[in-house]
Computed example of a mutant assay.
Amino acid sequence: MRPTAHVPDSVLDDVRERARTPAVARLRRGAVALLTVIVALGAVGLLGVRSVTTHAAGGGHELSLTYPRVARAGLDVPWDLTIRKPGGFSEPVVIVVESDYFDLFETQGWTPEPSAETSDASRTYMTIDPPPGDTLTLGFDAYIQPSSQLGHSGSVSVSEKGVDVATLEFTTWLVP
């Protein structure tokens, strides 16, 4: 007489449960906790763009810049420069920016458009026609390039007769 084969009640009957050690369980719990923290930070907006405003003064000018302090690739970011000169602007305004900083961005352009623009090895010089009143606002419509990884430091100055009279320095950090 031949022995009869055992017929399983389920296709899972012969699947062994893997023994879990306490170390593996702690590791798994830690990984789940870390992912939960990351998801929670993202849900409340702490992993997006963090903008700040910085100020400087010199040569009769007051500068205020709102820029991305922390950002991620692919996101729209603010970069808005306000220059105030009590008494108003009688001549065109020359704004000088470090060219390397703007390699972080894909741009849609400046508002207002400079009436003239030139550059040297490290800086871009934009000439803006004098606005009415005592305030000039220069906006940069941009987003962080998808290929940008680390961030960059830069500066913006108002120049009169080839001399920087007021300068702001700033740094944008990029996170994954």
Rank of each mutant, 00 (worst) to 15 (best):
A5G: 05
D120S: 05
D100V: 03
V39W: 05
F89Y: 08
L34K: 00
V175Y: 09
F170R: 12
S119W: 02
P130K: 14
V158F: 04
W79E: 07
E91C: 03
R50F: 00
E17V: 08
M1Y: 07
Y67K: 03
T66M: 09
D164Q: 14
T135D: 06
G59Q: 05
A57Y: 01
Q149G: 08
I95F: 02
P131N: 12
T21D: 07
A121L: 13
L35C: 06
V37I: 14
L47A: 12
S64A: 15
A73V: 02
Q108K: 15
G48Y: 00
A57N: 09
D134N: 13
T172Q: 05
Y101H: 12
L104N: 06
V94Y: 01
W79L: 12
V15W: 11
A40K: 01
L34T: 07
M1H: 07
G42D: 03
T4K: 05
E17T: 06
Y67H: 10
W173I: 09
R50W: 02
S64C: 00
G45M: 01
S153E: 15
A25W: 08
V158G: 05
P132N: 12
K161C: 00
L81P: 03
T111Q: 14
T54V: 15
V94I: 11
E113Q: 14
K161Q: 09
T54G: 04
L35H: 01
E106Q: 14
S99V: 01
E113K: 15
A23P: 00
A56N: 05
R84L: 12
Y67G: 01
K85H: 14
S90F: 00
V97W: 01
P131R: 08
T135C: 03
T53S: 12
I83Y: 03
P131Y: 11
L34S: 10
P132F: 06
P92M: 12
A71D: 01
L12S: 13
R29K: 10
G58Y: 05
I38C: 10
V32G: 00
T21W: 05
W110A: 09
Q108R: 15
G87T: 10
D120A: 08
R20H: 13
D164L: 10
A19T: 15
D13S: 13
V175D: 11
G59T: 06
P114E: 02
L75I: 03
E117R: 15
G87D: 08
G151H: 02
A142H: 08
L75V: 11
D14E: 14
E62L: 10
D120L: 07
T4F: 01
T111C: 04
P176K: 11
W173E: 07
S122T: 15
A142Q: 09
L81K: 01
